[in-house]
């Protein structure tokens, strides 16, 4: 549906210009914040998505309100605004899922995990799992965590806090867990699950949480199977849980 009621041109309307410029200002601000050293993983990911959103928004805004006609809406303003936000959300979620690993790799590029023993272990185990050997990166954070991406090429990130806490075998258990995530394409699955939860009303009927938990358990089982014992997976989990328990107090 197209409304033919003529509105001022995009660049002649100060309100539209202020909205677009404010969005670009938010993009700049979030970019500067992303460069900060002492950010937690969650906050950095949130800022990356917010940055992409505020960067994409002015372009979608321009496409929707550039001429005399407003798409999809009749003459209502609410419907195109909803469509515009949804489309911006979809585009920025897709771009963000590609950008986030790149930002993390770039931030960690000076901290590649150059431990020969660990690299050899990961190479051997990724061969067993039938995946390309992932690159290993260090995240400068005292919180113990590890995560992986397989969007462009397989990458595993390990925090220094995790290396501080875990012994060699426990670290191997975590790496095996992440290798399994890469083999399962878990980062793509997690992204899709998040995407579905946010945008699809049908997600309430899908048991995504349970499937994600099962995927986690499967990765744990794989690590136990490869190590021939559940001892190291359990002790690694215990140490990580204890850290976050103490952190809350």
């Amino acid at each position: 549906m197209i409304c033919n009621e003529c509105a001022p041109l995009f660049f002649g309307d100060p309100v539209k210009i202020v909205i677009a410029v404010s969005s670009l200002a938010v993009a700049l601000l979030t970019f500067l914040l992303i460069l900060k050293r002492d950010l937690s993983y969650g906050v950095r990911v949130f800022l990356i998505y917010l940055h992409v959103f505020s960067l994409v928004f002015p372009f979608v805004f321009y496409l929707f309100f550039s001429g005399c006609s407003t798409l999809f809406s009749g003459c209502s303003k609410i419907v195109p605004v909803i469509y515009m936000l949804l489309i911006t959300g979809v585009i920025s979620a897709i771009i963000g899922s590609v950008c986030a690993p790149i930002v993390f790799m770039w931030r960690s590029s000076r901290c590649r995990l150059n431990d020969r023993g660990i690299s050899r272990f990961v190479c051997r185990e990724s061969g067993v799992a039938g995946i390309r050997p992932p690159s290993l990166f260090i995240v400068d954070s005292a919180s113990p965590f590890a995560f992986s991406f397989s969007n462009i090429r397989p990458v595993i990130f390990v925090s220094v806090g995790l290396l501080d806490l875990l012994g060699r075998k426990e670290l191997e258990a975590v790496l095996l867990h992440e290798i399994m995530h890469i083999r399962n394409g878990a980062s793509i699955f997690r992204f899709s699950a998040f995407f579905m939860r946010v945008f699809s009303p049908l997600s309430m009927f899908a048991s995504l949480g349970r499937e994600l938990d099962e995927e986690e358990l499967g990765a744990d089982r794989y690590a136990c199977l490869r190590q021939g014992t559940s001892r190291f997976v359990e002790s690694a989990k215990r140490k990580i849980d204890l850290f976050f328990y103490w952190r809350k107090i």
């Binding site: 113990p144 806090g161 850290f243």
Partner: peptide, 14 residues
């Protein structure tokens, strides 16, 4: 004391 508690304390002092 647990290793995890020491790690948390050091992070807090940081």
């Amino acid at each position: 004391v647990a290793l995890s508690s020491v790690a948390v304390i050091l992070d807090r002092l940081f």
